[in-house]
Design a protein around this nucleic acid. Sequence first.
DNA 1: TAAAATATGAATTTTAATTTCATAAAGAAT
DNA 2: ATTCTTTATGAAATTAAAATTCATATTTTA
Lengths: 282, 282
Amino acid sequence: MTSLRQKIEQALSELSEAERRIGEYVLGNSEAVPHMTTKELSKKAAVSEATIIRFCKSIGIGSYKSFKLALMKDLTLTDTSLTDFSVLNKKDSPYDLFHKVIQVNKSAIESCADSLDRKELTKAVDAIRDARKIVFFGVGGSSTAAVDAQYKFTKLGYHSITSLDFHHMLSVIPHLTEKDVFVAISTSGKTKDVLELTRFAQRKGATVIAITTLSKSPLYKEADIHLCTPNVEQDFRIGSLASRMTQLTVIDTLYLSIFHHIGENVLQQYYDARGEMERLRR
Amino acid sequence: MTSLRQKIEQALSELSEAERRIGEYVLGNSEAVPHMTTKELSKKAAVSEATIIRFCKSIGIGSYKSFKLALMKDLTLTDTSLTDFSVLNKKDSPYDLFHKVIQVNKSAIESCADSLDRKELTKAVDAIRDARKIVFFGVGGSSTAAVDAQYKFTKLGYHSITSLDFHHMLSVIPHLTEKDVFVAISTSGKTKDVLELTRFAQRKGATVIAITTLSKSPLYKEADIHLCTPNVEQDFRIGSLASRMTQLTVIDTLYLSIFHHIGENVLQQYYDARGEMERLRR
DNA sequence: TAAAATATGAATTTTAATTTCATAAAGAAT
DNA sequence: ATTCTTTATGAAATTAAAATTCATATTTTA
């Protein structure tokens, strides 16, 4: 059985110029097309709406609506993925961008599976499980993951700390010991603030877990445990939206793993928190 | 997240009479529905067309067209790809959990496409573009998205504010005017703190954008603009990891859209920031 | 080089999706 | 019990999307 996209590909050479443009656009942006109208697609492919309809018939599908359904089915069966925003262009509407964001984020999360090492993950979970304090630190885009992690581990009953403020962190770290864990979050692994705090924490004896991309970066080299995120494409102007998704995926994994381990013991506290929340109608 | 059909099945008891008839028809004839128009389906289910549209929203999908696409996808997925945490079991290793996290997060992001309404998105982008100040607020798990958004829009040159502290926010809101935008983030749409600040902001004349699930929640009703996130499964003990991913996907979309709009104008500031960062070797 | 065939888009028509509004029924408040 | 709200619903109107028609441009063929 040939998929719809294969069919389009094969038909490409036999289509007229305008119809071929449609085919090419569809192949290049298949994720977005099922949500498009004929008018939108006609603009994108620089053809008329009439030609869209003709295109559908050319590839053997009776109507544009059926075409979209067939394409959706095709996509569900075999997932392709766009991985960067390089294809953004001037006339993209917010809705177009939305679909690109979905794709990029999805594929970023998917590729987490490739970069994370299972042994390192096990080490990280063990370290965090027995930790007395957990300190998270990330700057810029990576602060999101730090804030998120801090919240989650507090919920689990840990003494969990983060701050966006370097100086605040400077006053936290002297109190760390071998019993504590410092989680450094930096996509590049080169961020100076993160590195300095990492080294400081390490001098105090804390176990350092790095959430960073697999590379020869100083952070990677110096950390005790490496939770690697994939090297997702990053637009030099936009910055990386997707790397934050990968960091959060790692955080989620740590959270769930710890929950799973100590879960039964914190359930009472969870119910307490929830009950009180209900009582206060918050 | 459960499949669309499961979701309908679960929702059945809570739907109104007419909507339930639709749900039952859809479950009994799911193969046929993706090819039906609202008029046809309304006849089959013995309801009005308007009720069809309302049914889609009731089960958390933004439009009839999205509903049909989602249903088609659901039908195509024969394998019940485990997408929720209900299948967690005792002997899951951290690495097993990791793969489940990937699954869940991926599918959450994917289903964003079903719930977000393109017109609302356009309205939101327009509102934010012309905003003088943007205030983000979310509590608990939703604070992550607020913090992230605040950072991103500051980068774009906006006067962008957030705080985890309700009292701090209370002192921010009196200064809002019609020129400002208040973005309320709450999965359930029922969080009291968020609602109170939302109403306060609205009284001051600010445009309220809600990032929340499509539901009959107070936040949904009261907001001026709704950016709906999908109703992702949420384990009552673990809390929802995935809903944060959907909120961030919406934030990313807003950020990219605004960047796209005013992008060229902020590039110089981006370079300045980057240059200075290099100079300071941070 | 003229006639026929083909390809294309603008404009129109048809159809479908969505919204609005009026009404009826059910609940809550007095 | 009765008024006021809220909720549910469909009929009608509106808006948006898909499909068709038709005029024109281009290419091919005789």
